[in-house]
């Protein structure tokens, strides 16, 4: 009997379309009650050149929901864990707030929640995903930078984008197997 193929959630980002409008950041805050001062996602800005030959580019980033998440590995209590579909989560009730995972994340995707004193991170809006919706940042994005989907579903837009477009992951040398794919 064929085993039902498991889902593997991932995200494709077309950074060139990012206009640094912060909609994803605010949408995330609203959806996930993220306190002021900490963020589950961000937009990295890179600037270069001298007037008037200037360049500026934006790379949205959040938890890469890695294949081999180092945060999960170092967690002493097992509060950080990875679901079968690849989403890396924190069981807030088990988190003791040692912040080891924050340090262990090569993508600086985690933060210490100043209100709950536990560690917070992007969940890919798993609660929305589980009821068939898109993550808040994906849905709200004005320039549609983000495509969220199941890597194992050949029919998904995400799968097709990765099949047809050149792409890269951020710092593959971390060995974490990040699952945010940036189109080139």
């Amino acid at each position: 009997m064929a085993k039902k193929p498991t889902k593997r959630y991932a995200m494709v980002l077309d950074s060139r379309k990012c206009i640094d409008c912060k909609a994803c950041i605010v949408a995330c805050k609203a959806e996930n009650d993220v306190p002021l001062g900490v963020f589950r996602n961000r937009i990295n800005v890179e600037k270069a050149g001298d007037y008037p030959k200037l360049r500026m580019s934006f790379d949205p980033e959040q938890c890469h929901h890695c294949e081999n998440p180092s945060c999960v590995r170092v967690c002493p209590t097992g509060a950080s864990y990875q679901r079968e579909d690849g989403i890396v989560l924190v069981k807030y009730d088990d988190c003791i707030g040692c912040k080891y995972c924050i340090i262990a994340c090569p993508y600086d995707a985690r933060y210490h929640n100043p209100e709950t004193h536990t560690v917070g991170k992007c969940t890919f809006c798993s609660h929305r995903v589980d009821r068939g919706e898109l993550p808040a940042c994906v849905e709200t994005c004005p320039s549609k930078v983000r495509v969220f989907g199941d890597l194992n579903d050949p029919k998904s837009e995400l799968h097709q984008l990765l099949a047809s477009r050149r792409h890269q992951v951020m710092n593959p040398q971390t060995g974490n197997g990040p699952q945010l794919y940036y189109l080139l």
Binding site: C21, A23, I25, A27, A30, E139, T140, P142, K144
Partner: peptide, 20 residues
Amino acid sequence: KLNPNPANPKSRGMLCARGN
């Protein structure tokens, strides 16, 4: 939460930071 309503072609299925 406020989410974009894709039914309106003018807003192109998005809600910006301010709207959120």
